[in-house]
Design a protein around this nucleic acid. Structure first.
Lengths: 164, 164
DNA sequence: TCCATAATGGTCAATCCTGACTAATCAGAA
DNA sequence: TTCTGATTAGTCAGGATTGACCATTATGGA
C-alpha cells in the first residue's frame, strides 16, 4: 500500500489534477518506481473505494482538468497507512546483489573491471543527487536517505574490489 | 532480468528440481522477492526460450521430479546477464521513505514513538542476520550486504529520532 | 494400523503494472 | 499565420506476479 500512501499524501491538503501529480512523482520516480499508467490505475481504484473523488474543472477552452480530492475516509486511511509505514521496517531488495552472488563465475580481473564500472555509476549518481536541487518539501527526505545509502554502497564496493 | 539471472545462476553446474530451487530461494526470499508461482512461470519461459531443459526423474513410486538443466545457450545468457548486472548500478527503492515524506502530518511525539518501533524492527532484523547461519555458498554476499545497509539504516534512524 | 505431516510439483484466476499510444488546446516563436 | 512544443488527460493490450488451491507418496509416531 505504499503507492496508495504516496498518492493520498500528495493529495492531502492540496487537491491536484493528474498532470501535477505525475510531475511531482517523476522528480523522485527513480526512487519510487511509479509510472503514469499505474498512477491512473490507482487513482481509479481509490475513487471506487471512496478514498478520493474527482471533479472536472474547465479553464478557458482547454481540455477539462480532472481534479482529485481526498475524502474524509481517504484522510483516515492515510493516517492509518502512514502510521503503519512509519512503525514498520521494510526489508530492502538490492537487485545488484544477485550478480554479486555469482561473482565466482568470472575471472577475477573481469570482476574487478566490472565492479569498477559499477562503482563509477554509483559515484555519478551520488554527484547528481548532491548537486541537483532537492525536490520541494517533504520529498526531500527521500533524497537524503538515498545519499546516505549511496555512501555506504561506495564503501562496500571499495572493500569488495580491494579484497577480490 | 535479475530474476532470470538468479535462476540460471542456481542451475549452473548443478541441475535441480523445482523444490530444491524454491527451498534455496526461500532462505533469502526476504531480500529477493521471488515467489514459487513466479519461479515456475520463469522456468517455463526459460524452457520456451531454450535456456534450460526439463527432464522427469522417477525415484521409487514418488511423484516424478522435474529436473531443470542449463543449456549451452542458457550458460551464454547467464554470462551476459551477469556481466550486465555487475557493471550497472541499480537504484534502490526504500518503501519506508514514503512514510517519512509525510512525517509532518503527525504530532512529533507520535512520530518519535513510531520511529522507535521501526528502529526496534531494524535492530531485530540485524540481530537475526548476525546470529542465523548464513546460507550456503555465494548467496552469503546478499546477507553481508544487507547487514551493511541495516547498520546505515540504524544510524539514520537514530539521527532522525534525535532531530525531530 | 492409522493418521498427520513433510516432501514433491505444480496450476490458475485474479490482480497488478507498464510501454506505447491517442487526442485536444494553447502560448510563443518565426 | 503557421508551426512547435508544452499542457492536459488519459487508455489499453499484454505481460508479470501472486495468493490460494490441488494431488500424490513416504515417513514416523500413537
Amino acid at each position: 500500500m505504499e503507492r496508495e500512501l504516496l498518492l493520498l499524501g500528495l493529495l492531502r491538503g492540496q487537491e491536484m489534477h493528474g498532470y501535477q501529480l505525475n510531475e511531482i512523482i517523476n522528480r523522485v520516480n527513480r526512487y519510487i518506481g511509479l509510472k503514469k499508467a499505474t498512477v491512473y490505475f490507482l487513482l481509479d481504484k481509490m475513487d471506487d473505494s471512496g478514498w478520493i473523488t474527482r471533479t472536472d474543472e474547465q479553464e478557458g477552452h482547454r481540455p477539462p482538468r480532472r481534479v482529485y480530492h481526498l475524502t474524509a475516509e481517504g484522510e483516515a486511511i492515510f493516517q492509518q497507512l502512514l502510521r503503519e509505514n512509519l512503525a514498520q521496517h521494510h526489508p530492502t531488495q538490492f537487485s545488484g546483489d544477485i550478480g554479486l552472488a555469482f561473482a565466482d563465475a568470472l575471472p577475477p580481473d573481469d570482476l574487478r573491471m566490472l565492479l569498477a564500472d559499477r562503482r563509477a555509476a554509483v559515484e555519478a549518481e551520488l554527484v547528481t543527487l548532491r548537486t541537483t536541487d532537492h525536490p520541494a518539501g517533504s520529498l526531500r527526505w527521500i533524497i537524503e536517505h538515498q545519499i546516505r545509502h549511496l555512501v555506504t554502497e561506495l564503501d562496500w564496493l571499495d572493500e569488495l574490489i580491494h579484497t577480490i
